[in-house]
Simulated scan of single mutants.
Amino acid sequence: MAVVVLGSINLDLIAQIKSVPKAGETGLAENFMTSPGGKGANQALAARRMGAETALLGMVGEDAFAVQALKFLRQEDVDLSRIGVSREKSTGLAMIVVEASGQNAITVVPGANGVIGQDVLADLEARLTSKDILVLQLEVPLDVVEDAIAIARHIKARVMLDPAPAVANLPKSLYRVDIIAPNQVEAETLIGAQITDVRTAKAAARQLRSRGVEVAIVKLGEMGVVWATARGLFYLPGEPVKAIDAVGAGDAFFGALAARLDAGDALADAIRIANHAAALSTTKRGAQPSFARWEEVRQYLSN
């Protein structure tokens, strides 16, 4: 069993600022740092740190950014043997502005992530087995995600989709997954309605599940998480932590969820653990450097 992630690989350029400038306004950042990122890479690392055997498939550029982007993944022994290299496009970049409150705004330059194609899909078909969990996001071409879902369905592997960045009128074929898990804003885009509280989040989860998904999860940040299954609607409150940086928290949740499901945990238990992992990630700066290990989460749960 393993968690197999097909997704984006970025280098994050992060500026910390009191508040995000308005249009036409110049803001003075208080600090700057670089960090490996990309939703695919983030979720692969999060899954690995939570104990899962993990493989990442994707593309980087033929540049120095690639070395930095893959740094933590190599250190954690994530399987990178099927990472492709583009000679035409740079490694993906994400420019992130983090407010003092912990909220953030992100601009993504896809780079090599945008040219993932048939070679990577062929590698996926060769790597994936029926015992694996395939983890997908939308920072790579939609047709690649559609084909990856079709491959996984043929192999009979479980499929998890993080529909980010959200796309209005998401193709029906992308709902042919076992788990979909947008955050609050992404869920609003998918269903075309505002989510203001737990009640409306539950309604959104129910609507998403009606589109053919086995489990629909809506991540609500500090408010917690709701999910819909054939058994009904469920809610888990957020964790009372002092958040300083929410970058990557959703990826920490999704990667941890995949890892615990791969380990055989029941869905509710896996969501509870993922909720803890996401909360812990907000107490540290950056995305990948903030991801908790299974031992840390297990100790947190026992307190």
Rank of each mutant, 00 (worst) to 15 (best):
A55E: 03
L142H: 03
A258S: 14
V120R: 08
R211V: 00
L257W: 13
S173A: 13
E188C: 02
A126E: 15
E125G: 12
L57N: 03
A268D: 15
A47Y: 01
R87T: 15
V109T: 12
G117Q: 01
D77T: 14
F234C: 06
I271K: 03
G102V: 00
V241P: 00
R49F: 04
G286D: 04
L208V: 10
A243P: 09
V115Y: 12
E88Q: 14
F291C: 11
R293K: 10
D143A: 05
V140I: 15
E146V: 03
A46T: 01
G221Q: 02
V108A: 06
L13H: 15
K156V: 13
D245R: 03
R49K: 11
L190M: 07
G24N: 09
K71W: 13
D178F: 09
T129F: 00
A41N: 12
L142T: 10
A44K: 13
D63H: 12
Q137T: 04
T129D: 13
V67Q: 15
E295P: 01
A15M: 12
A263T: 07
G27Q: 14
S8P: 04
A55H: 01
A193N: 05
A277R: 01
A204D: 02
A270Y: 07
T200N: 06
A216W: 06
G102Y: 04
T196H: 00
V97P: 02
P240E: 02
P36I: 07
V225I: 10
E296Q: 14
A126P: 11
A126H: 12
L257E: 07
L70S: 11
I217C: 06
L257S: 07
P163M: 12
W294D: 15
V20T: 01
